[in-house]
């Protein structure tokens, strides 16, 4: 049956995408974490009171900038961003796949889900 074959291929691509995304994310977080502990491991933590994170750890572009400067907290935050972006990339894959199959209904559904995700992730 053509449909279930197509779905099976999508499942396999999606599985590969998720695994790759999580691995890359964990690697970046681990490297950033190593640098962070080497630099600030001896300081006293302060997580008891909430005071919002600084601007460079809150928006997409600022996080990328601070990671490029090899700031340890920026690197860890970039890794966390990758793990959040991974499922979003999955929805993009679904959108493209259903568009190729000319399945208008599912292209529409994927587009709405993607819009909600992108709005949430970039509204900062």
């Amino acid at each position: 049956m053509e449909r279930s074959d197509g779905d099976r291929a999508l499942q396999k691509q999606m599985g590969l995408l998720l695994r790759t995304g999580v691995l890359i994310s964990a690697a970046i977080v681990a490297v950033g974490g190593g640098l962070y502990l080497a630099g600030e491991g001896a300081s006293i933590p302060d997580y008891g009171v909430f005071h919002s994170e600084p601007d460079e750890l809150r928006s997409l572009f600022a996080i990328v900038e601070s990671a490029r400067a090899l700031d340890s907290r920026g690197l860890m935050q970039l890794g966390l961003l990758v793990v959040l972006a991974t499922p979003v990339a999955g929805v993009v894959l679904e959108l493209v796949t259903f568009a190729r199959r000319r399945n208008i209904l599912y292209v529409g559904i994927a587009a709405i889900v993607l819009a909600v995700l992108l709005h949430s992730l970039t509204s900062s």
């Binding site: 997580y47 994170e53 750890l57 907290r73």
Partner: peptide, 10 residues
């Protein structure tokens, strides 16, 4: 993230 609730060190 945008409201600063995600701390990378933690």
């Amino acid at each position: 993230l945008s409201r600063g609730y995600i701390d990378p060190g933690l």
